[in-house]
Every structure is written in structure tokens, then in C-alpha cells.
Amino acid sequence: MTNSANRRARASQKRQRLTAAAARVLHEQGVERTTLADIAREADVPVGNVYYYFKTKDELVQAALSEHTARLDEFTGRLEQLADPRDRLKALVEAWVDQRDIAVRHGCPTGTLAVELDKRAEGTLDAEVGAVIRRLLNWAEGQFRELGLSHPDDLALTLVSAYQGMSLLANALRDPDIMTREGARLLRWLDSLHAHGGHL
């Protein structure tokens, strides 16, 4: 590799480290409380370097959202390897429950970001975080449609709403058991769905 190719590869790795750090710190601290210095520290890069890649905090939030999108796509891509759409949906619920300790401390990464960004007067970031949630809804809807269920869009809405609700309550009440109980109920609900029914 030439020197310039080396430099480009290092710059790309540094940007990726900062993006991943931004996603973590923004989830843990929220947008308003997070500084560029916090993200630099988490990524283990000098704070001056952050400005080279991201001029404003909003650009970092945008990078964090692209990280959430990439993680969601990677995760749903892994779920797609399961032959049965019902098993894919159940694996999604199980993954949510596995993250219950993080939800208790910080809530859902995209849900909490959506609420916080909606409170700001300026910018379009609230619409962008909405697009990440819409992506999950669309994926879930596709699974319900593949199962031949009627109103797959409503079923997807029920599922994702249940997740946002259980994350919010687990966080507000500092109780991971909420995620465990609600997750078990969602798994039973998914098992109960047949071509002509399935209300929670």
C-alpha cells in the first residue's frame, strides 16, 4: 500500500471509531449533554481531530444515526438467514430482551434520540431518526407479510410500539424485568398469530 493509501485507510478507521463512539456516547448521555471532547475521549483520538471529520455536533449526530442504520441492516441481514419469518421476528424480540440492561440505563438508542431531537427547534435530524425507526417497521412488516398475515403494517406497528414502550418503562422504572416479561408476552403473541387473527 502506498503512503497516501495508508493515510486514507487510517483516516477511514479513525472516522469509523468516532462514528461508533458518537453512537455510544449520545445514547448514554443524550445530545445536549454530549460534547465533542466526550466523543474524542471515547474514540481515543485527540479532540482536535474530531473537527477534521465533523464540523458540528449535528454532523456527529448524523454519523451516529448512520451507525444505527448500519447496525440495524447488519442485524436484520443476520436474521434473514433464518428460514421462517416467525423465527426472525422472535429472534428480534429475544435480542431486545438481551439488551435489557442497556435499556434500563439509557432506553432505546433510536427512541431516546427521536424524543430528544423532536424537542429541538432547528434542523431535520428528527426526521432522520424517524427514518431509522421506519426502516425497522418496514422490515417487520415484510416478515408479517411473508407469513401471509392480514394487516402486516399494523402488526409491525404493534411489535415496534411494544418494544419502544417496554424500553421506556424499563428505563423509567429501572427495572429489567419489564423487558423480560413483555418480551415473553410478545413471543407468545407471535406464536399465536395465524392467517386470521392475532390481536395482543
Results as ranks from 00 to 15, higher is better:
W96E: 11
V132T: 02
S150N: 12
L190R: 08
R71I: 00
R100K: 13
L159T: 02
I39T: 03
P152W: 10
R17T: 00
H196T: 12
Q62N: 13
L186E: 01
D154L: 13
V47E: 14
E116D: 13
A170T: 04
V104C: 14
D126R: 15
L187K: 05
T2D: 10
V93F: 05
L147Y: 07
V104P: 11
R135T: 05
A131G: 10
E80Y: 01
G107H: 09
R15A: 07
L159S: 13
Q29A: 10
T180H: 00
R105T: 09
A21C: 02
F75M: 09
D126V: 06
D154P: 00
E80L: 08
D58C: 09
V61F: 15
P85K: 07
L186A: 07
L168P: 04
W96Q: 11
A195L: 08
L137C: 05
E141R: 15
V31E: 12
L65F: 06
T76Y: 01
A63L: 04
L79M: 08
H194Y: 08
S161W: 00
P109L: 12
E42Y: 05
A156M: 11
T19W: 03
M166C: 09
Q16S: 15
A70P: 03
A70C: 08
H151R: 15
D98P: 04
D87I: 00
D175S: 03
G30N: 10
I178L: 03
E42F: 05
R7S: 12
R88L: 02
P46V: 02
R100G: 10
D154E: 13
T180G: 00
N49Y: 03
S167M: 11
Q62S: 14
D58T: 05
R8V: 01
L137Q: 04
R185E: 14
A83H: 10
T110R: 10
D153G: 15
R185Y: 04
A40H: 08
V50S: 14
R78L: 07
A21S: 10
R71W: 09
P46N: 13
V115E: 15
G165C: 13
S167A: 15
R145S: 12
A140H: 03
F144Y: 14
V61P: 03
G183A: 04
L168D: 04
F144S: 12
G148K: 06
E141I: 02
L72R: 06
E74N: 10
H194Q: 14
Q143L: 09
L79E: 04
V104N: 11
P176L: 02
R174F: 01
E141M: 05
A20T: 08
V45Q: 13
L149I: 03
P46G: 15
E182H: 02
L65C: 10
V25P: 08
Q16F: 07
A140E: 09
R7I: 01
L159Y: 14
S192A: 15
D154K: 14
